[in-house]
Design a protein around this nucleic acid. Structure first.
Length: 245
DNA sequence: AATCCCAACAACCGCCGTCAC
DNA sequence: TGTGACGGCGGTTGTTGGGAT
């Protein structure tokens, strides 16, 4: 924790930076419990906290607020993040609205540490068509499969991923493969989360953006022809999906 | 055991929109 | 209408813990 002296001539108050202590958390929590959210700049003067209003707000929203979910992001949540990001881009707060208990900060961190990392390892830009296609045609269908497998039965652990033809460079290159990814609403049932239909209704401002999960028939022909689909990249994706997703 | 590296997460910073005056 | 305060958002950076060497 660092103390930063303000240059204000009126008050020689110092601003605390860095990680919050339990005592600070307690002060903030008790204040908001009594007075409610808002008026963040007055929190410091009421509580004696040497934090900025912004810092108090962030601490409350990302940590102290009730019902904040912490821990691993489930497959369903990952799928929803991928889907919503395809619609809205880096509008983390909007995406977070559809993941109850998750904060925009957490979703943003997830995207940067997982998804952007994958893009870097594949040596392509996270916003490139190639990478979007990767998400669209490989990651999401695979995640849907796994979610369905989880939901249907724990005993039926048959995964069609291993040796699946569409991820094999040799078979991909010579034939057209079609997959029919289920809709979002078919593939998961996240309590409190928006269905695909709700998402569509809420995203009328982005009607021309890509709609990952509403297409009914995907062809791999064009994709496998792209230079991006090197044997190394396909193998890498295969491994990543098998190991992590 | 020491150190290095990296992933994950927490927190800060700067910009922008809104609203009251 | 201009302006300043405030809150929200997204980008970025700092910290930390765990695994690898």
């Amino acid at each position: 924790m660092a103390m930063v002296a303000m240059t204000s001539s009126e008050e020689e108050m110092t601003i605390t930076k860095g990680p919050w202590t339990e005592e600070e958390d307690s002060l903030l929590y008790n204040y908001i419990t009594l007075h409610g959210q808002g008026h963040w700049n007055s929190v410091a003067s009421y509580t004696g906290l040497k934090r900025t209003g912004k810092s108090c707000r962030l601490r409350w929203l990302n940590y102290l607020r009730p019902n904040v979910r912490r821990g691993n992001i489930s497959l369903q949540e990952q799928l929803l993040i991928l889907h919503l990001h395809s619609r809205w881009g880096n509008r983390w707060s909007k995406i977070a609205e559809h993941l109850p208990g998750r904060t925009d900060n957490e979703i943003k961190n997830y995207w940067r540490t997982r998804v952007v990392k994958q893009a870097k390892q594949l040596k392509c830009d996270v916003n490139s068509k190639q990478f979007r296609d990767t998400l669209r045609f490989v990651w999401i269908p695979r995640m849907v499969e796994r979610i369905q497998a989880q939901a249907s039965s724990s005993s039926s652990s048959s995964s069609s991923w291993e040796g699946e033809p569409q991820t094999n460079a040799h078979s991909c290159g010579s034939s057209t493969l079609h997959v029919n990814p289920p809709s979002v609403s078919d593939s998961y049932n996240l309590p409190g989360a928006a269905t695909a239909e709700q998402v569509n209704n809420n995203s009328n401002s982005n009607s021309n953006s890509s709609t990952l999960l509403t297409e009914t028939d995907y062809s791999y022909t064009d994709i496998v022809a792209a230079d991006f689909w090197t044997h190394e990249n396909i193998s890498f994706l295969q491994q990543q999906l098998a190991d992590e997703l």
